[in-house]
Design a protein around this nucleic acid. Sequence first.
DNA 1: GCATTGACTCTAG
DNA 2: CCTAGAGCCAATG
Length: 105
Amino acid sequence: MSSQLFHRIYEIVLRIPKGKVATYGQIARLAGNNRAARTVGWVLHALPDESPAPWHRVINRSGRSSFPEAAKRSLQRALLEQEGVVFDENGVVDLAVFQWDGAES
DNA sequence: GCATTGACTCTAG
DNA sequence: CCTAGAGCCAATG
């Protein structure tokens, strides 16, 4: 399959433990392409509705979501806060604390 | 099949 | 902090 990268990224996203977040670049690295962050973004934006993938746990390297719509960002923030992730006054997640190690669950 | 775009990231200035 | 260029992958026109 040529879309194996899609599947790989998908599995990695599903592996993100609750209360943690991962960056596009991190997922891309785990998927085998350290710079395919754009593809990760594409996978998440193209996820079907029935996808259990926690897209809200995926953020950019700044610890902030890059949604074109503020509504989704608010939703993502709410979901993460429900899982115990804290946002600062700028709406940024402390990656030093909440970024997924990528090695456990 | 080529060109453009996109929920990205890195390096350099 | 901001801009610019390069790299990667798939969708879309």
